[in-house]
Design a protein around this nucleic acid. Structure first.
Lengths: 193, 193
DNA sequence: TCTGGAAGTTACAGACCGGTAACACCCTAG
DNA sequence: CTAGGGTGTTACCGGTCTGTAACTTCCAGA
């Protein structure tokens, strides 16, 4: 049967895509490799021929997710070429849209919550990817002409991260409902300084 | 052997305390009931005589955690009786202290991330407890004489929630390092309106 | 048409999981 | 001293987990 994953792509790609989706929805420890391969229309042996372990698969999924996020940033630049302030507003808008569309939050943050072993191989990858995203937002704020760019970027980061996790515990009608308002008035106040 | 849990309390109390600690450190799905009972210096049968299932134990742990948090709020009132603004600053201070002391974040939010089944019995408890905490912070902001009390409370909530989860993915040197500064300047700007 | 590698199949190992049954023990209240 | 409830012990159930072995099937390219 088809599972939403294109049937005629290569097994490795199907596994990666299916795993991303299932890890996102059910958590990492909430999904077994058997379930992934079945949903991907393949089998366990094929998974282990392409990924040396479940942990390795998790890491590849996180990288893929980060790559998708990166493509969204490209859209900002494409839609508002050179206009960094407009891109920052677009970031807020897009973040809000993703919040409404999906209540399971950020895969990397969720993974960090689930994978508690301090030496888990995925942890350093999570940290690297999150740091890269932070750098990007700081650069965007700075290039948008904001003075305390790091502080604004970090505040926006925490707001979004908080909105994503709040969504999962109290739902969409909780504090996260006001995210856009908070972010926009924050940007305004930083621009006024 | 002793495990930090008082040896001469009742088994039920030892189990509850140990489970809280282990769920907090290693996550819910990362700890088995065997490990809990062993660390609590008792056995599985005794656990199941006091709690009808692991899920039920999880719920009791969350309630206990919320009760501890509630006691912290009592301290605010005790230390700054009647002075709600001082209590709000104390809230910021205390939040920051807890952030520094422990990088595993909020048990309820973490549980919400781990327990993805929408009908999991713990989810409604999490929602109730989180909503109660929200109410408290809103009331504190309002009683401190702040106009848009709900908005400030929700913004502070998201900042703290974000700081707690950011801590787990990027560490203490990430955006969460600026939490106090963000919170205080936010309070100041709300007071100025 | 032949061949070699990728993919599928089945079965299994070994560990862990939540939860239960049956029974022995101990300690305290009467 | 005795009875009984709380507790400890051991063994087990059925299920799930990650990961592997051995074998078969399929299909594309030479």
């Amino acid at each position: 049967m088809t599972d939403g994953v294109a049937e005629r792509s290569r097994p490795r790609d199907r596994i990666l895509e299916t795993a991303q989706d299932m890890f996102h929805k059910h958590g990492i420890k909430g999904v077994g490799v058997d379930a992934i391969t079945e949903a991907a229309g393949t089998n366990k042996m094929t998974l282990y021929r392409h990924f040396e372990s479940k942990d390795e698969l998790v890491i590849e999924c996180l990288r893929a997710t980060a790559a998708k996020a990166s493509r969204i940033w490209d859209e900002f630049e494409a839609r508002h070429p050179g206009d960094k302030l407009a891109q920052l507003h677009a970031w807020v808008q897009k973040a809000s849209e993703l919040l409404s569309a999906d209540s399971r939050g950020c895969d990397m943050a969720n993974a960090a919550v689930e994978l508690t072993e301090t030496d888990h191989p995925a942890r350093r990858v999570i940290k690297e990817l999150k740091e890269a995203q932070r750098e990007k937002l700081v650069a965007l704020c700075r290039d948008a002409g904001i003075g305390q760019a790091e502080l604004l970027a970090d505040t926006l980061s925490l707001l979004l991260e908080g909105a994503r996790v709040s969504m999962q515990s109290v739902g969409a009608e909780g504090p996260s409902a006001q995210f856009v308002r908070m972010a926009e008035s924050l940007i305004a106040s930083f621009r006024a300084r």
